[in-house]
Design a protein around this nucleic acid. Sequence first.
DNA 1: GATACATGGTTGCGAACGCAACTAATTTGG
DNA 2: CCAAATTAGTTGCGTTCGCAACCATGTATC
Lengths: 146, 146
Amino acid sequence: MRPYSVGKLMSFINRIAQRELAERLKPHGIGSGGQHSYLKAILATPGMNQDKLTSVVKFDKATTTRCIRQLEEAGYVKRTVDEQDRRSYRLYPTEIAIAFEPKLQAILDDYNRLLTAHLTVEEIDALHALLQKMYDGLDEPSLNPT
Amino acid sequence: MRPYSVGKLMSFINRIAQRELAERLKPHGIGSGGQHSYLKAILATPGMNQDKLTSVVKFDKATTTRCIRQLEEAGYVKRTVDEQDRRSYRLYPTEIAIAFEPKLQAILDDYNRLLTAHLTVEEIDALHALLQKMYDGLDEPSLNPT
DNA sequence: GATACATGGTTGCGAACGCAACTAATTTGG
DNA sequence: CCAAATTAGTTGCGTTCGCAACCATGTATC
């Protein structure tokens, strides 16, 4: 039996949805793609270095460098050299970022509501649980060489 | 109550997974991203024009132009001018593409199995149904101006 | 404490993609 | 039947991203 094309559906949905999200973040100087993921992670856990952050958001470390630079230029993130290890930077949200957090969260909540607008509450629960399980399965040593 | 971050999970999973798929398609001269979607659509429905194809795969028409050009250069697709409407091209798979179809399908099946490796059969059924419903909901006039 | 190795971060390069502006063929309205 | 509007496709431009090569700091081995 042929497996369902779960990958195709996810890629479709993601592609359509990302355009919506980009449009909503743009007025706040936050670029499309992963920038908001970085900002959310820094707000949630201030003081991480870029390497840690890269593994949290699952992008490439080069992408991290660039996204952080953009967030810094937009005034959302501060970088300070870690005195314990002078190679790495500790990342902190600025006052502006902290003030913006509720708005950011509202945009993301809105986005999620849009995505799941045609599902019942039970269906959303089930979908979230399944995606979480899927994610946990993928986020394993086999695919994540140390 | 805060909505689940279904969007974030989907984007994570998609990002991780796309790298896997890209690696498997690369040896066959098929670029990462949407190229395989176009090829599959053309194999499934030969003779479409690019405009129709764009709406099927949900990319931008500029992206369609470029992906089709690459598939043509790679020898998978033929374009012929539609004599009924000389602006449009009819798209057909080449012999090579037809011969390659089973292999392509095997790669995609494999990919889907990888994605859902940690789910039970019932969970995969449920996930597929939910994603399909989600997709159908998004693929509506409100977001798809005619 | 000099040499090798590991690790955090950056840069160069190329691929993929969307938007907007454009060309060329077709349809519509007067 | 001609001008205006529409439609299929292309091109220019800017953004995002991954990979690989690289630099600088830190750690380990001798």
